[in-house]
Write a protein that binds this DNA or RNA. Structure first.
Lengths: 106, 106
DNA sequence: ATCATAATTTCTATAATATAGAATAATTAA
DNA sequence: TTAATTATTCTATATTATAGAAATTATGAT
């Protein structure tokens, strides 16, 4: 693949940035909150899986929880490779977003 | 649609930024040069079409050229709506890329 | 005139990704 | 043991990405 897709990038950035526990439900919540755009419930797991397969994330299942119930959470964290991808894309956009000309638009 | 896709964003930014004449071949050339990643010849026209359909770009055919030959070039320019989209996405990323914590990665 | 060359866009086919929400799983409380 | 809760996985479909061949249109050479 050439670039990270948009959801992939948002997921990686979120896992890097968020303070809450980084598992599916929370990651989705964070992205919705930060971007103001809706994501369906399932929509978060596809980029998560893909990013893990590519080696940009690693994960493990939560061992124990005293909360109400529910399936085990799967916690994610960024890998070195994942960070590298983010840095690469940041570099590209720094150049693109720099010195944009004033426009007179229709 | 929720966000601009990556190619859409790159195309819009390029049309905003590039100094050369903004038609397909040049736009592709510029993106390849700026990102260091290959795009096939046809790959540029799909986001161009889509962005125009969405109202983020407008275009017109070149009237006359004294160059060697070839089909008429189609020139593109950013619309107000297109600019708005870019500003929106920029705002999102400014927040995401700000205050990222130091990491100790595996 | 005809043919080769050149520059550009359009077409076509396929792979990959996005999106939504229902189904399933695992845990706890009543 | 049934209902409620929390989370992930599955399934189906729409959209987007990607590559490169084909078509279009003009020029230059013979």
């Amino acid at each position: 693949m050439k670039y990270l897709s948009r959801p992939e990038e948002l997921v990686l950035l979120t896992i890097w940035k968020m303070k809450e526990e980084p598992y599916g439900v929370n990651i989705r919540k964070y992205i919705i909150q930060m971007t103001g755009k809706y994501w369906s419930i399932g929509a978060i797991y596809i980029p998560l899986d893909r990013l893990e397969n590519k080696g940009f994330l690693s994960s493990h299942l939560a061992e124990y929880t005293s909360e109400r119930g529910g399936k085990s959470k799967r916690y994610y964290e960024l890998t070195k490779e994942g960070l590298k991808q983010l840095e690469e894309i940041r570099k590209i956009y720094q150049v693109f977003w720099k010195d944009l000309p004033e426009l007179s638009l229709k």
